[in-house]
Write a protein that binds this DNA or RNA. Structure first.
Lengths: 194, 194
DNA sequence: CGCAGTTATTGAACTAGTTCAATGTTTTTA
DNA sequence: TAAAAACATTGAACTAGTTCAATAACTGCG
């Protein structure tokens, strides 16, 4: 089942034969993560790229003032890693923690390099996936500039209703870059409009 | 000279033999853009990826309220495109305008595809470049959340002093996501502290 | 079950940043 | 070189969002 998800993930971006997928998937190994466990801690070196097959993660960083800042939440079919740390084997700026019992498929650095070498098509796959991620991040940056907090909140729960359900106000606030009290106030405002 | 810059650009990311670079660079053609001319207009389809060899561009979007939002400025050694529009040949959300007389090396969609096919190494090159862009955008997103406008302004002029020199307050404001009046006030504050 | 810890709500006081409008400055262009 | 246009500065009034503090509601756990 986890590998079925991995297959479906690829099919969204590129065509792989069964044999190609076989090779590709053989580089990944499953890992079970219990609730609140860390896949990666800020400061450590990120040894993996992970594909989420079950559960939910928050990918975040703590700034100098101790504020938590969520870069994104990852559920089934999302990838989790600190690319910078993984690529350069340098200390991570990001932490990755599960919000519930979860499962991932992991690939480590050496195997990733070997996979690139053995299957050049994987370069294309990750080039395409990274591009798509970049586009959505560009759009989010723009939204952050031109939307109000209310609009950003609404956009988030509309775009990711399933993820939003799993989250506390605190977590949503850390993603939107606002205070959790203000999330409360936004909710109240919305409720009273209906 | 423009092609020397392209060579130096590649050398930062990957190793190319002279022959490989020869092939690679033969896919690009130079274009001269005079001040305030558009390389791409929001709504049009982006037919190129461009490597800036001279001058300066702003890559921006206009939101529903008519506010201009600068995604980034591109000078020598930067790439300009609307990836989403280029990849999917769909209407662009972004406009790309030169701020001064400029020069770019362009590659169009078909040639890019042919290049990928002919030189799989180019997949790796663009995978790596896209990853680096993604990392810097992730960091910018986080900065936008945890820095004040003053801090973001200072970070910007410190990180890109050469670019900042070329820009008006209006343009810097559109990049930082604040009003240009506030940029003025920040400048005054900083000046008075010295 | 009951209690501890975390999360949510609310209000009051505050502040970072906006908006508007007026004035001054620089740049562009005829 | 003058006039027009674009850009920058400044202050006053405003507002979106914060911070703090107090209370209420949930959640998990022994």
């Amino acid at each position: 089942m986890p590998y079925t998800l991995l297959r479906e993930n690829i099919d969204k971006h590129i065509q792989f034969s069964d044999a190609e997928f076989e090779t590709y998937s053989s580089f990944f190994y499953p890992k079970t993560i219990s609730k609140k466990e860390y896949l990666l801690r800020q400061g450590d070196i990120c040894r993996f790229e992970g594909f989420v097959t079950k559960g939910c993660f928050r990918v975040y960083t703590i700034d100098n003032d101790g504020n938590e800042n969520v870069l994104y939440f990852a559920v089934e079919d999302w990838w989790v890693t600190d690319i910078d740390s993984f690529t350069n084997q340098a200390p991570a700026l990001l932490s990755i923690q599960s919000l519930e019992d979860s499962e991932v498929l992991l690939i480590n650095k050496k195997d990733k390099e070997q996979l690139y070498q053995q299957m050049p098509k994987v370069e294309k796959l990750f080039r395409i996936m990274t591009q798509k991620t970049l586009v959505s991040l560009q759009r989010r940056l723009i939204r952050n500039h031109c939307y109000t907090a209310d609009e950003r909140y609404l956009h988030f729960i509309k775009t990711y209703p399933k993820i939003a359900q799993k989250l506390t106000n605190l977590q949503i606030a850390a993603y939107l870059g606002i205070s959790h009290e203000f999330v409360s106030k936004i909710r109240k405002k919305i409720a009273s409009k209906k």
